[in-house]
Design a protein around this nucleic acid. Structure first.
Lengths: 144, 144
DNA sequence: CAATAATTGAAATTGATTATCATGTTCTCT
DNA sequence: AGAGAACATGATAATCAATTTCAATTATTG
């Protein structure tokens, strides 16, 4: 699935930026990753397939991916490290987070989104994006 | 409204910790603050009424307030600094955030909460807490 | 009031992220 | 293809928020 790499390259060309081996490496590995990944983790993962790419470049590329609308940064409570995920999966999904074991489940609920729109309108807002996190105990932690 | 100070003192006594002038100062100023405040901002505010209280102590006291269930820490996207708010207002309210001017409006929507419970149950979770943020443009930024 | 244990503030430390800078690469134009 | 200009890279240093350390101080308890 090189469509996203193509999207990135189009964005770069558009901005007068350059297509490099490192950017492609980081982007490729990132797009092959499901769920959330931190810059540090991505750096390690990239290093396995494409050694010699610096952590700094990983940070910089993730920033570009955000600007290009291909990645999304999230910050979970109490977590000092930011995590990234692909923008397409980031869109319209929310998180259930177990406060004991840290397990994170992603879900979608169109009805909630409809209500969000309504609330926003009531306050004169137009919604572009949202983030919802439910904190609680997962079934295994509750019975344990 | 010294009830909360009393709550804090009860918590401290319970844990074998001490009631100090500094803790009371930080707590008092924090409880008199509406909305969100960062540790740094709170430090400045405290320093005006009670000079000589260190930033470290503000951080430590906020941590205690969290443990005592009297404060809640939040982390908004893209914001490196965590912010705190009183637990009573933190409970069951959500945020509308303008992506241009940064304005934050708080709201409640019981229906959304009901749906959250249902979704969680579907995944075997019991909800203890939640966080929801809607990002968009406020009315003035949209027309500007 | 004395002994004990917790607290304080300043400074040092950590961990994540960003800036700097000399060197290397890509793109554009011919 | 080649040269020049502009951008990118990676190592290191710097920054920023938050935490830890530690010697000196203070609250509690008996």
């Amino acid at each position: 699935m090189n469509k996203k790499i193509a999207d990135l390259n189009r964005y770069l060309a558009d901005k007068g930026l350059k297509i490099t081996r490192q950017r492609e490496a980081v982007a490729q590995v990132f797009f092959d990753t499901d769920g959330h990944i931190s810059a540090e983790e991505l750096y390690i993962k990239v290093s396995r397939s494409y050694p010699g790419v610096g952590l700094t470049t990983v940070y910089r590329t993730l920033k570009l991916l955000k600007e290009a609308g291909l990645a999304k940064e999230r910050r979970f409570a109490e977590d000092s490290q930011g995590v990234f995920e692909k923008e397409d999966t980031a869109r319209h999904h929310d998180h259930l987070i177990c406060t004991r074991c840290g397990k994170i489940i992603e879900f979608k609920e169109p009805l909630i989104e409809k209500l969000q729109e309504e609330v926003a309108q009531k306050h004169g807002f137009s919604v572009e994006d949202h983030k919802m996190e439910l904190y609680g105990l997962c079934s295994s932690c509750r019975t344990a």
